[in-house]
């Protein structure tokens, strides 16, 4: 090495992983196979593992937060209370008192999405097998789409259950003249159908893009460091970039969970009152 340092042990430890492609982190790795028939693959994968970890973390956190309720809350309890208040206010502000019944759903959704995003940002344990590397389930569109379909499905089911055919008023906004309805109705239907898709794409794209950017910057560090000479010193710049993007990703993790939850609230508001 031109720096006069023996970088080889360092290379093996840190640079090698950096050389991995930016998309490799999203690969689904089966942990143990459950391939029932040729058509159905129910293998337990790293995605399943991290969703389980997410649920476990949430369960553990709220068990601790509510175990010994005190009048003057401790740190864990007040974190739990702040989370509760935050989602409760969001539900109350968008849907009013009628929306109370949806609180458990919105709260679960918010916590699940947030913890998936958040835990996916933790660094992997160095040297661990690929199957247990840190994984962000929300960086896969099938996961986010399932969640989005769940929300919009709830809107449809609850809307039809509560209003019957009146739910169809959603596609015919009040105050529109009759002759415009044949034009407005298809537009409203397409607009409604694009909701789950945009809900899913937004969350998925944000998570995917963030992790790819981190990986690409990490690749820059590796390339510059091995280039030698002045270029090795320049590798500090992408490293600082990684730190910045990494911190930003924590904000994005929260913000996307928040947006997902609040849009669910706004759509559920439609189920409560279909006529705009």
């Amino acid at each position: 090495m031109s720096l006069g340092l023996n970088l080889n042990p360092l290379m093996d430890r840190f640079i090698e992983p950096l050389a991995a492609g930016p998309m490799e982190q999203f690969e689904i790795v089966p942990i143990f196979g459950l391939d029932f028939a040729e058509a159905i693959d129910l293998s337990f994968t790293n995605a399943s593992l991290w969703m389980l970890i997410t649920v476990g973390t949430a369960l553990l956190f709220f068990t601790f937060a509510t175990r010994q309720s005190k009048l003057i809350p401790g740190s864990v309890q007040s974190m739990g209370e702040v989370t509760y208040e935050f989602v409760a206010n969001m539900v109350r502000d968008t849907m009013g008192e009628e929306g109370r019944g949806f609180f458990p759903f919105v709260f679960t959704l918010f916590i699940f999405v947030f913890l998936c995003n958040f835990l996916g940002l933790l660094p992997s344990i160095p040297g661990s097998p690929t199957s247990v590397h840190t994984f962000t389930p929300t960086s896969h569109i099938i996961v986010t789409f399932t969640l989005a379909i769940l929300s919009v499905g709830l809107v449809v089911v609850y809307g039809v259950f509560k209003h019957g055919f009146g739910f169809l008023k959603l596609f015919a906004p009040s105050g529109v003249p009759l002759w415009l309805l044949p034009l407005i109705t298809p537009i409203e239907i397409v607009s409604f159908l694009s909701r789950p898709v945009s809900l899913a794409v937004r969350l998925f794209a944000n998570m995917l893009a963030g992790h790819v950017v981190l990986k690409v910057f990490a690749g820059f560090v590796g390339t510059l460091l091995t280039a030698g000479g002045v270029l090795s010193i320049l590798s500090v710049i992408p490293l600082l970039g990684i730190i910045g993007v990494f911190l930003l990703e924590f904000l994005v993790a929260f913000l996307q969970a928040f947006v997902f939850a609040i849009l669910t609230c706004i759509y559920l508001q439609d189920a409560l009152h279909p006529s705009h």
């Binding site: 969001m90 502000d93 298809p186 537009i187 409203e188 397409v190 694009s194 609040i262």
Partner: peptide, 22 residues
């Protein structure tokens, strides 16, 4: 129709930013 629906969605979400709810 998709184009019109897109414009309508954009208009609606700008008239009602999620941060302020409904």
């Amino acid at each position: 129709i998709g184009f019109a629906a897109g414009l309508r969605t954009v208009y609606r979400s700008m008239a009602r930013p999620p941060a302020e709810g409904g």
